[in-house]
Nucleic acid binder design. Structure first.
Length: 865
RNA sequence: GCCGGGAUGGCGGAAUUGGUAGACGCAACGGACUUAAAAUCCGUUGGCCGUAAGGUCGUGCGGGUUCAAGUCCCGCUCCCGGUACCA
């Protein structure tokens, strides 16, 4: 029994592709041909190597790339490395190994692994964000941002992580702990580079309309940008001339219900307005708030706190005097940092008012059955003088007009989106191309780029907010080429996001020393037609990249406002299904899973330990899984996210070693829909391996027939062409593979396999399992790779069948199937159908009351009576 | 809480505009090959009743529309992802 020699085949073809540069996309392509730019989110080359999640998206794009080549497109399908980043630097800190060394090693490992999967990347276009030839242009873009006033310095409260010795972006801090490492972080005021992304908020929002992206991702970006419409309203401070507090509200219609005001503790007005009596209390509260991390501020949100400043403000609509408080439930960084509190219509304000015994006044009539506290729904206004009776929308318009007439307020749009904190106190990142001279910032001229990193022996944070570059004394001092004076370099570097904001442009023209990308080439290749990557980048990477791209568009560097036309997220691959039994550690007794919640016995609260059960020891009873030895004990069945600590990580290298790259690729695509989360099953790989072995035997065990194929063979081939083609176009790789399997199952029943059937089949297989396909293709006698062989053409004529099985229903239930021509007329079909004994039986003697005939689909007869 | 997605055999999943639910694969079972096992190959496989023909129930739960509902409508439950004092 000949086995399918995948090791030999796969290494042969990988070598062939590499030597012949089969997938090279020349700089000069025939631009009269259509183009297709298919892009993977490039990986961070971590020390752990590739995991099974990477090849999922990469295989999907590879299939599309190979398919589009066969359809005559010029295809751009590149790969590279997002290689700056903290892990290499932290490794350097521990071991003294230069991050460049670590990075290079990791890249080599990743490259080798990707090549072992047979992806059709144009390796001549490989890029690396840490390469000076690359980050020269990252720095160049920074200069563009700086020129356009979109990069500025600010003293901003930022997350400072003592352990990492660096500041972090909001996004890198989760629950007051660093995203990487989980170390505690605190707020500090530091000088930082900030990018004015908020200037583009509206356009970033609008641009989403033009993209073919998952709705969920667009929605996440919209939420992140967080546009809201409302008003800025001025409240004069009582007994203080020319002092007023500006608030932002989205509910100006409720202004008659404003019974107090709240300032954020950091608000500059606080000190001015606080009365002497309250001074101590206010200062105490401010100190407390500044020391609280955001974690504490949000974690303790159930219990709101605040203190009275002693001051009062005048409500401009009714001249009422209302107390001014400070409280940390109001954020200084959003809106004006101050609010008018309307407890009647706002749950947070209600909670605060209830706690401190502040007045509550409803200004929207809740429905009669309303039982809650604050009412945030719609209804007629009340207690609101000239607004009374108006519903929210109308009341808003009325009050906004009034406020603007009286010049005490104006319409205002606000965004949750903040400017992007762009500097990091790290070594392993792009240096920011500016210098300081007498406390002043000067951007460096383009011709001195790239600004390289200095060589360092130590990578320790300097312990100050300056980071390790502050220790590179020689590097630090420079003559400013513009002024000829001595200047000091910026010690901050860029965040890891920088390099990935524009890498897709560099692939188009990767070695150009003169420009970041040639405009003609950019125009031809952009936008990216298909972009596949993880949903974890739904907001940050994809929003930052869009922002930079819009700036480059405004600067005339690129030709499209949006970089990624179509975006797809591959779903996460979980570990193998696990069966878990629960056991009391104390008594060793099993506890049935339905009595367990949160790892505890539901009634007694006893803490239980989970025990992994081997499949062999599992019995099943209907929809429940039981312990074979103790059938009254139910098990939990679930797949978990792969993690080292859980020990359920699958290493792709081992799978490829055992089953080959083709079987691995095929399985990753066959598991289920690309976007979906799905559990891994190594048995499943065995299944796709078996499928490839069957193909191998089908085509190599017996000589192909040179005879003309029969109609049935042609029909099956063309059905397969149709299905595979449609499925690839719609990224339904799982059903495309099922179609290929069905073809093979059918072909095994034939006495002979005609060459004219086998050859197109191998072409259909090629995008999915390229190695075996190339091998078979060459055995057919072809000298060249099939990479550019034309995709099999669908001939609809061959799909037609003379006779089909038509289901016949009586009262909506199938009672028989009859063989008729697909387009047979109703009379004829009816005639045949009522001959069927089973149909007769259910129809009774009387003719049917109604007949529904959908040609080619169904005949449904409604019985009389 | 809010936003988004989902629930179909023992498991992963199929199912055009509503038109034979369970394609394809895994697992399981039976058989072939083998001294034996693994591998491989062939066959069976949603539950229940029936020797069979066939019947009957069945796509998270409860209603509805329709000749016909996994698919459409109304009301829920649970799971996953995101987000969270944004005024």
């Amino acid at each position: 029994m000949a086995v399918y020699p995948f090791r030999k085949i796969e290494s042969r073809w990988q070598t062939y592709w590499e030597e012949k540069k089969t997938f090279r996309t020349p700089t000069k392509v025939d631009t009269t041909k259509p183009k297709y730019y298919v892009l993977d989110m490039f990986p961070y080359p971590s020390g752990a190597g590739l995991h099974v999640g990477h090849p999922e998206g990469y295989t999907a794009t590879d299939i599309v790339a190979r398919y589009k080549r066969m359809r005559g497109f010029n295809v751009l399908h590149p790969i590279g490395w997002d290689a700056f980043g903290l892990p290499a630097e932290q490794y350097a800190l521990r071991t003294g190994t230069h991050p460049r060394i670590t990075t290079e090693q990791n890249i080599c490992r990743f490259r080798k692994q990707l090549k072992s999967l047979g992806f059709s990347y144009d390796w001549d276009r490989e890029i690396d964000t840490t390469d000076p030839g690359y980050f020269k242009w990252t720095q160049w873009i920074f200069l563009k941002l700086f020129e356009r006033g979109l990069a500025y310095e600010a003293k901003v409260p930022v997350w400072w992580c003592e352990e990492l010795g660096t500041t972090l972006a909001n996004e890198e801090v989760v629950d007051g702990k660093s995203d990487i490492g989980g170390y505690p972080c605190e707020r500090r005021m530091l000088r930082q580079w900030v990018l004015r992304i908020t200037e583009y908020a509206e356009r970033l929002l609008d641009g989403l309309e033009e993209t073919d992206w998952p709705v969920s991702t667009k929605e996440m970006q919209r939420n992140w940008i967080g546009r809201s419409e409302g008003a800025d309203i001025e409240f004069p401070v009582q007994d203080m001339d020319a002092a007023s507090i500006l608030v932002y509200t989205t509910r100006p219609d409720t202004i008659f219900g404003a019974t107090y005001m709240v300032l954020a503790p950091e608000h500059p007005m606080v000190d001015r307005i606080s009365t002497e009596v309250q001074q101590d209390e206010v200062q105490n509260y401010k100190d407390l708030a500044s020391r609280k991390s955001d974690l504490e501020r949000t974690e303790l949100q159930k219990e709101k706190t605040g203190v009275f400043t002693g001051a009062y403000a005048i409500n401009p609509v009714n001249k009422e005097s209302i107390p001014v408080w400070i409280a940390d439930y109001v954020l200084y960084s959003y809106g004006t940092g101050a609010i008018m509190a309307v407890p009647g219509q706002d749950e947070r304000d209600w909670a605060f008012a209830a706690k401190y015994d502040l007045p509550i006044r409803r200004t929207v009539q809740p429905p009669p059955d309303f039982t809650g506290l604050a009412y945030t729904g719609d209804g007629p206004a009340m207690n609101s003088e000239f607004l009374d009776g108006l519903h929210i929308e109308d009341a808003k318009i009325r009050i906004l007009d009034w406020l603007e007439e009286q010049k005490v307020g104006c319409r205002k749009v606000n965004y949750k989106l903040r400017d992007w904190l762009f500097s990091r106190q790290r070594y392993w990142g792009e240096p920011i191309p500016v210098v300081f001279q007498n406390e002043e910032v000067h951007s460096l001229p383009e011709n001195v780029l790239p600004i390289n990193l200095p060589e360092l022996d130590e990578f320790k944070p300097s312990g100050t907010p300056e980071g390790p570059l502050a220790l590179a004394t020689e590097w630090l001092t420079v003559t400013n080429p513009d002024t000829g004076e001595v200047a000091r370099r910026e010690t901050n570097t860029m965040p890891q996001w920088a390099g990935s904001c524009w890498y897709f442009l560099r692939y188009i023209d990767p070695r150009n020393p003169e420009r970041m990308v040639d405009p003609e080439l950019e125009k031809y290749w952009m936008p990216v037609d298909l972009y596949i990557g993880g949903a974890e980048h739904a907001v940050l990477h994809l929003l930052y990249a869009r922002f930079w791209h819009m700036v480059l568009y405004d600067a005339g560097v690129v030709s499209t406002p949006e970089p990624f036309a179509k975006l797809v997220h591959q779903g996460m691959i979980l570990g193998e299904l696990e069966y878990t039994a629960w056991r009391s550690s104390a008594t060793g007794q099993w506890v049935s899973a339905e009595k367990v919640s949160d790892g505890k016995e539901v009634h007694t609260g006893i803490i239980l330990e989970p025990v992994q059960i081997d499949v062999e020891a599992v019995a099943k009873d209907r929809e429940r899984f039981l312990l074979k030895d103790a059938p009254d004990i139910q098990l939990d069945v679930r797949a978990f996210k792969m993690s080292k600590s859980r020990g359920n990580v699958i290493n792709p290298d081992e799978i490829i070693e055992q089953y080959g790259a083709d079987a691995f690729r095929l399985y990753e695509m066959f598991m289920g829909p690309l976007e979906q989360v799905k559990p891994w099953s190594t048995r499943g790989v065995h299944g796709t391996f078996r499928f490839l072995s069957r193909i191998w035997r089908l085509i190599t065990e017996n000589p192909l027939s040179e005879k003309e194929p029969d109609r049935k063979q042609l029909r099956i081939l063309h059905q397969t062409i149709e299905r595979v083609t449609n499925d690839i176009e719609n990224l339904r790789m799982n059903t495309a593979i099922a179609a290929l399997m069905e073809f093979v199952n059918a072909a095994f029943k034939w006495k002979e396999l005609p060459r004219t059937i086998a050859e197109p089949f191998v072409l259909l297989l090629a995008p999915f399992a390229p190695h075996i396909a190339e091998e078979l293709w060459s055995r057919f006698g072809y000298k060249d790779s099939l990479a550019y062989a034309p995709w099999p053409e669908l001939n609809l004529e061959y799909l037609a069948e003379e006779l089909i099985d038509l289901p016949v229903q009586v009262n909506g239930r199938v009672r028989a199937t009859i063989r008729v021509a697909p387009g047979a007329d109703k009379q004829k079909v009816l005639h045949v159908a009522i001959q069927e004994p089973n149909v007769k039986r259910f129809l009774g003697d009387a003719p049917p009351r109604r007949e529904i005939y959908v040609p080619g689909r169904i005949l449904n007869l409604v019985a009389a009576k």
